[in-house]
Design a protein around this nucleic acid. Structure first.
Lengths: 184, 184
DNA sequence: GCCGTCATGTAAAGCGTTACATGATTAA
DNA sequence: TTAATCATGTAACGCTTTACATGACGGC
């Protein structure tokens, strides 16, 4: 395979913690993993079918009051996940539109960039807040992997703070630039 | 359009600074923009054809000793770029395999995670070094957009430093974890 | 003459989002 | 009963990478 889809590993990662429906897997990815991963329904359901065929997951017998299908990871699935976890991570190739726009520099007025920065700040504030909420929540969660998950949340906290520090610097410089332009 | 390709804007952004061949555009994207953007040849050449048709770029008359085709942005192309620059940036959706693996926690031994961290450190060291080289280079570059480009490099420096700080924290905690396991 | 770089291009394959369709259950 | 949520699924579309093919030019 050239670009093996990693959706299967995202699914297995979520199911490793507890059995879930396809819907809940998507929810988990887009909440727990939101800082570094996303999945769409159009990707998850076909993947679950494949994982069923390969016996990496199994469908649990429906319990009363249960909606939809609930999947559980199998011992084989855990092995599949483990094997992948051992492989070196393929470095993420960012494509952050934001900086491409920044590179445009004087093609647009400084004010346009300042607006972009302001939007970015709102997003970062929200992301930082959710990382901090996650840290608080994790304090009272008993789980063998608590340390890993806490470190993940810490990563969010640290990098969002760094981004915000950069934002301060960028805004300051651009505002100076704007004033110079006005005073000329 | 649903997912309008941003390759065209990457091309226009590069050509805005100076006329380039398709090959050089790819080089520029994967060097200058490497922190936040990537393009492949299979994407660039078809895009250049489209941009020619829409008259956003034009082919320069071949000069002696020139290899291949060299493209230049047109006034219309500059307008196209400007219009896009004014639009709010679509937030980047990361898919960083690295953290998905980290989430796997105790599925693999601590040593596996420490190896992942060590690899990540090497990558970050290299990225930080290149950001710092860029900053030095920019010091002596006279260009109206120098400030923007410097801020971009500063973003790299700041965020890579933050990542490295997190790495220190993560390594420390995981090593403690490893020792505890050994001493039991 | 040969290799490395510069250069252009296409085809295949697969990834992934979006939009759409559908329906059950539950809470207001 | 009406809306929101939970739930499953598919089809279209286009993006993107990868691999491959080809060839010119320059330096050794």
């Amino acid at each position: 395979m050239k670009n093996p889809s990693r959706t299967q590993f995202a699914c297995l990662s979520a199911l490793r913690v507890s059995p879930l429906s396809g819907y809940k897997i998507a929810e988990t990815c887009n909440a727990w993993f939101s800082d570094f991963w996303s999945e769409s329904y159009g990707q998850i359901y076909p993947t679950l079918k494949k994982l069923l065929l390969s016996e990496d997951i199994e469908k649990l017998p429906p319990e009363k009051g249960q909606r939809g299908d609930v999947y559980k990871i199998t011992p084989k699935g855990l092995e599949t996940l483990e094997a992948w976890l051992r492989l070196p991570a393929v470095p993420a190739s960012f494509r952050d539109e934001y900086f491409l726009k920044f590179f445009g520099g004087s093609v647009v007025p400084v004010s346009v960039h300042l607006e972009h920065l302001a939007r970015k700040r709102l997003q970062l504030d929200a992301l930082l807040a959710s990382a901090q909420t996650a840290l608080k929540t994790l304090e009272i969660v008993p789980h063998p992997d608590k340390d890993y998950w806490t470190l993940m949340a810490r990563h969010g906290e640290i990098s969002y703070r760094a981004e915000l520090a950069w934002l301060d610097e960028a805004e300051k410089l651009l505002k100076t630039k704007q004033n110079q332009a006005t005073n000329q």
